[in-house]
Simulated assay, not measured.
Amino acid sequence: MRILFLGDIVGRPGRRAVQERLPGLRARWRLDAVVINGENAAGGFGITEAICEELIEAGADAVTLGNHSWDQREALVFIARQPRLIRPCNYPPGAPGRGANLVDLRDGRRLLVVNVMGRLFMEALDDPFAAVERELSLCPLGQVADAVLVDIHAEATSEKQALAYHFDGRVSAAVGTHTHVPTADHRILPGGTAYISDAGMCGDYESILGLQREELIRRFIEKVPGSRPEVGLGEGTLCGLAVETDDATGLAVRAAAVRIGPLLAASRPEFWD
């Protein structure tokens, strides 16, 4: 199975990059599944129903979230009727929506998408290890799911690595999100799980994490709150991770960073191009 994961979409530049490039990439790379983190898609804060539908129309099979899941209040309502929108599975019982979904792909195979949020330096949710364990016990790789992708939305690299190694061999890919800066550690772990500490963002990199620089710099200097930061206005770069799995095991056999756009050094999966 050929899977493309795209990191946090930040505002209009990130959405435009996805809408303009993803349809062509899906055809060129003969992708079986596309998962996108969309928690910053609406002006840098949260996601709306209209934007979620736009991402699905562009080629996303599932859209994951994170600590900004509910910044747009309408997400609390429409997530219940959109099974392809997935919030962290370790929200306490009673939270709207779902933390995992077994997605039926176009060729009939099934991809389990799990979203989990870390607890170090972030809002303290339920135990992420136990939450992912629960989802995997319901849809084991190779028995119910043909492939399993876990979006680890966390601040601390150590926590992302701990989760990935703990579930190595039981998931096809464990992809870090949240920090908006692509890391250079993409690899396949000993048990066969593709991993990267952070997939990076889809957005304007001539910015600070996708937001315009001036207000954020002022805050660092003056230590006084101000206006809400606005999304960067430059051209968006597409960032993520390409993963190919073994059909017999569901585990990863190839993994490559994806970076397409201005500023960052270009990277594509040579085994697909």
Rank of each mutant, 00 (worst) to 15 (best):
L111R: 05
A174D: 13
T193W: 03
R110V: 02
G200C: 13
M117H: 07
V148A: 01
E135P: 01
A130D: 02
T157F: 07
A154Q: 09
E133H: 02
T183M: 12
C139F: 11
I188R: 08
A199Y: 08
G176F: 13
K160H: 08
V175I: 15
I196N: 12
V171L: 12
L189R: 09
A184N: 06
R119K: 14
S158D: 03
A194W: 08
A147G: 11
P128M: 06
C202E: 10
P128A: 05
A194R: 10
R187P: 04
T157Y: 03
L136Q: 04
T177G: 08
G191V: 01
D127W: 00
D185N: 08
H166S: 02
P190C: 00
V116F: 09
V114M: 08
P190E: 04
K160N: 12
A194P: 11
M117Q: 15
E155T: 09
V181F: 04
G191N: 01
A199P: 09
F121I: 12
V132Q: 05
L120F: 15
A147V: 07
T157P: 06
P140S: 03
L136Y: 01
P140L: 05
L141Y: 06
A147C: 11
A162G: 14
R170Q: 15
V144N: 01
T177W: 08
L163Y: 11
A124Q: 15
F129A: 07
M117C: 12
L111M: 09
F167N: 03
P190F: 03
V171M: 15
L111A: 04
G191A: 10
G176S: 10
R119I: 15
S158I: 06
S137Q: 04
A173H: 14
R170S: 07
S137H: 03
I196H: 04
A154P: 04
V144L: 02
H180L: 10
P190K: 01
I188D: 12
G203A: 15
Q161K: 11
H166M: 01
D185V: 03
I196G: 07
E133T: 01
L111S: 05
L111K: 08
K160F: 14
H153V: 03
I188S: 06
D146G: 08
E135D: 05
V181Y: 00
L120W: 11
R187K: 13
L120I: 14
Y195T: 12
P182M: 02
M122C: 13
F121E: 07
P182W: 04
T177E: 13
I152E: 08
A184M: 10
A131L: 03
V116E: 09
A124T: 15
G192H: 05
L111C: 05
R187A: 14
R187G: 06
C139M: 00
Y165V: 11
A124Y: 04
I196E: 10
L136C: 01
C139L: 00
D168T: 06
P182D: 09
F121T: 04
C139K: 01
A156R: 11
V181Q: 10
I196A: 14
P140C: 06
F167Q: 12
R110M: 03
V132M: 07
D168G: 15
C139V: 00
C139I: 01
G142D: 02
G191R: 08
